[in-house]
Amino acid sequence: MHRRRNCFRLCERDVSTLRLTRNTNLKIINGFCTKPQESPKPPSYSYNHRVPLHKPTDWERKILIWSGRFKKEEEIPETISFEMLDAAKNKIRVKISYLMIALTVAGCIFMVIEGKKAVRRNESLTSMNLEKKARLREEAAMKAKAE
């Protein structure tokens, strides 16, 4: 308990020294510091709201056509905005992911069909491995006899 009081007194002393060292334009109200209100100043410079343009490469031109943004390469302007290029790239990403999903589903269906065909022919990985091992043993025995 005695230690807590000493700690509190030390903190209280530090806070009072902080108040004395603060800027004079800060007001101390009920122990809280607030800055004086300043009127907002209009910017001294004028900002031009032009979007930075980019000259597309041949690959980016193909992306713009594939995404459906332009029909022909002649329709693409000399400079385009980065936002237009990003939107075209995102469309292509989405189309590629849909294609990958479709190919994955088609591959799964194909493998299920092939597995069912193998079951009908009584083929399994175990039987195929046993046949392969028997064949390799026969070949090894034939080589041993030949020597």
Rank of each mutant, 00 (worst) to 15 (best):
Met1Val: 02
His2Thr: 09
Arg4Pro: 01
Arg5Cys: 05
Phe8Gly: 11
Leu10Ser: 13
Cys11Gln: 13
Glu12Ser: 14
Asp14Pro: 03
Ser16Cys: 11
Arg19Phe: 12
Arg19Leu: 13
Thr21Asn: 04
Thr21Arg: 08
Arg22Pro: 03
Asn23Met: 14
Thr24Glu: 13
Ile28Leu: 15
Ile29Ser: 04
Asn30Lys: 05
Gly31Thr: 04
Phe32Gln: 12
Cys33Trp: 13
Pro36Arg: 11
Ser39His: 14
Pro40Glu: 10
Lys41Met: 15
Lys41Phe: 09
Tyr47Val: 06
Val51Pro: 05
Val51Asp: 08
Pro52His: 06
His54Pro: 02
Lys55Tyr: 14
Thr57Trp: 02
Glu60Asn: 00
Ile63Tyr: 01
Ile63Phe: 01
Leu64Val: 05
Ile65Met: 02
Trp66Ala: 10
Trp66Ile: 04
Ser67Val: 07
Gly68Met: 01
Arg69Ala: 06
Phe70Glu: 01
Lys71Tyr: 12
Glu73Val: 01
Glu74His: 03
Ile76His: 04
Ile76Val: 07
Pro77Tyr: 01
Phe82Gly: 06
Leu85Asp: 03
Ala87Glu: 15
Ala88Lys: 03
Lys89Ala: 00
Asn90Lys: 14
Val94Lys: 13
Lys95Glu: 05
Tyr98Lys: 05
Leu99Pro: 00
Leu99Glu: 12
Leu99Met: 05
Met100Val: 02
Met100Asn: 08
Ile101Phe: 15
Ile101Lys: 13
Ala102Val: 03
Val105Leu: 08
Ala106Leu: 06
Gly107Tyr: 02
Gly107Pro: 02
Ile109Gly: 01
Ile109Ser: 05
Ile109His: 00
Met111Gly: 04
Val112Arg: 06
Glu114Cys: 12
Gly115Pro: 01
Lys117Ser: 06
Arg121Ala: 00
Arg121Gln: 07
Arg121Glu: 05
Ser124Gln: 01
Ser124Val: 02
Leu125Ile: 13
Leu130Val: 01
Glu131Tyr: 06
Glu131Leu: 11
Glu131Met: 10
Lys132Asn: 09
Ala134Val: 04
Arg135Thr: 05
Arg135Tyr: 10
Arg137Met: 06
Ala140Pro: 01
Ala141Asp: 08
Met142Cys: 09
Ala144Ser: 13
Ala144Trp: 04
Ala144Gln: 11
Ala144Tyr: 08
Ala146Asp: 15
Ala146His: 12
Glu147His: 13
Glu147Phe: 13
